[in-house]
Amino acid sequence: MINQKLIDGLSDQFAQLMSGQAQLPGEEMMKEQVSAILQGTFNRLDLVTRDEFDAQKAVLMRTREKVEQLEKTLAELEQKLTERDA
């Protein structure tokens, strides 16, 4: 899932954009609400971290290599059967 520091950083940046001044009344509440909105949005998007993505990519690459190896082995066996039957 998305790191909480990312959510906090985005909500802080949003609060700075909105205020542009020193601490305003209600600013902390606004930060909490923005943080909650961002967290909810990211949860609905079902995002993953770069590390999770890279790990799944590595698994997929290994699986693809195994499939290609099995396809090659199958083609060789089929060739042998064809030659034997001929």
Rank of each mutant, 00 (worst) to 15 (best):
A36S: 13
D85T: 09
T41P: 01
E52S: 05
E28W: 00
A75C: 01
P25H: 00
R84N: 11
G26D: 10
L47M: 13
D46V: 02
D54V: 12
I2F: 08
L45M: 14
S11A: 15
A58M: 04
L74S: 07
D51L: 06
Q33M: 15
L81V: 09
S35Q: 13
A58G: 04
T41G: 10
Q39F: 03
P25S: 01
L81G: 12
T82I: 09
V34M: 14
Q21P: 01
N3D: 15
G26K: 08
Q21W: 03
L6I: 14
K80F: 01
G20M: 05
E68L: 07
Q21T: 11
V48H: 08
L74E: 04
D46S: 05
E83L: 10
P25R: 00
A15V: 15
R44N: 03
R84Q: 10
D46T: 06
V48A: 05
S11Y: 01
K57C: 04
E76Q: 10
A75E: 09
L24C: 06
E68N: 06
T49F: 00
G26R: 02
E27P: 02
Q69C: 02
E32S: 10
E68V: 03
L60G: 07
L77K: 15
Q21F: 11
D85E: 12
P25E: 00
D51G: 06
T49P: 00
L77D: 11
A58D: 09
R50A: 07
E28K: 04
L45Y: 10
G9T: 11
T63A: 08
A55W: 06
Q13G: 12
K66C: 02
S19Q: 02
V48W: 01
G26S: 15
A36I: 02
E71L: 11
Q79E: 09
E68S: 02
A75R: 13
K31E: 00
D51P: 06
K5S: 14
V67Y: 00
G9N: 12
I37Q: 13
E27M: 15
Q21M: 12
M29K: 13
T82N: 08
V59Q: 14
L10P: 01
Q69N: 04
